[in-house]
């Protein structure tokens, strides 16, 4: 829309200035939650054992990788799917316990709450992997970026799979399916290490990048679908 028309429209719909606006807003000043504040309030609702579990898996990755020969370091790296399992299980906690419809009655939008909690856990996991990548890369004699790709790919693959399963199945059975999918990705990682020689060779790195991009896209899409599902519930 051109500026001339916009200005003319504003003039055509001009209203006299309101008299009591300042007094009204002063009397009823409200503090709205900002994005960071909102994120922090939701962090408080994440169960303590999720944080501890994530830290435990991080410690386990480092313990198992320590003292390994260069290629065997990646055996420990294939534990990252369990980090994703913890994050997704927290995001689907209400649905798993059949409380998701009750959550809809809350003051805050459920979709935004789920997104905030999963973002918080995702950032936390990303920070843990960010710490692990240079350490494991150093032990295996690889670059940090390369180690990051090996750590992040199974994590994102599991996150996408688990979110899809959580949407498809209700109740505690969803957790069983998620655990099975996580175990399958873990087994795939172990197999890449032991059965398929060369999966972690430098020549295979472009393939890893390709899979990483695909799993990243799938994770974003699944997150969007998970949040969108709450809106469908709300208005149906």
């Amino acid at each position: 829309m051109d500026k001339k028309l916009k200005n003319a429209l504003s003039a055509a719909f001009a209203a006299p200035p309101p008299k009591g606006k300042d007094a009204f807003l002063r009397a009823h000043r409200r503090r709205e939650l900002g994005t960071v504040e909102w994120l922090l309030t939701q962090v408080g609702y994440i169960r303590w054992y999720i944080w501890m579990g994530s830290l435990g898996i991080f410690a386990l990755i480092l313990c198992l990788a320590a003292g390994q020969r260069s290629e065997e370091v990646w055996t420990a790296a294939s534990l990252t799917p369990f980090l994703a399992l913890l994050a997704v299980s927290e995001g689907s906690r209400a649905r798993r316990h059949g409380m998701d419809e009750l959550e809809l009655a809350c003051r805050m939008p459920v979709g935004a709450a789920i997104l905030a909690r999963m973002t918080a856990l995702g950032l936390f996991d990303l920070a843990l992997l960010g710490v692990a990548a240079p350490i494991l890369g150093n032990w295996a004699g690889r670059r940090t970026l390369e180690a990051g790709v090996y750590l992040l790919t199974p994590y994102l693959l599991t996150a996408a799979l688990d979110m899809e399963l959580c949407r498809r199945f209700r109740g505690s059975v969803s957790l069983v399916y998620c655990a099975a999918a996580t175990g399958a990705v873990y087994a795939l990682g172990m197999l890449s290490q032991s059965g398929w020689a060369g999966a972690y060779r430098a020549e295979a790195l472009p393939l890893w990048w390709g899979v990483l991009v695909l799993t990243l896209a799938a994770s974003v899409l699944e997150t969007f679908k998970t949040v969108k599902r709450t809106e469908v519930l709300q208005w149906s």
Partner: peptide
């Protein structure tokens, strides 16, 4: 119809008048 005599700092008054008649 829309009121004619409102002071406005936005836009050209002639444009606003022409537009108001169309609105």
């Amino acid at each position: 119809p829309l009121p004619e005599d409102l002071p406005s700092e936005e836009g050209d008054p002639l444009d606003a008048a022409a537009l108001r008649s169309e609105l």
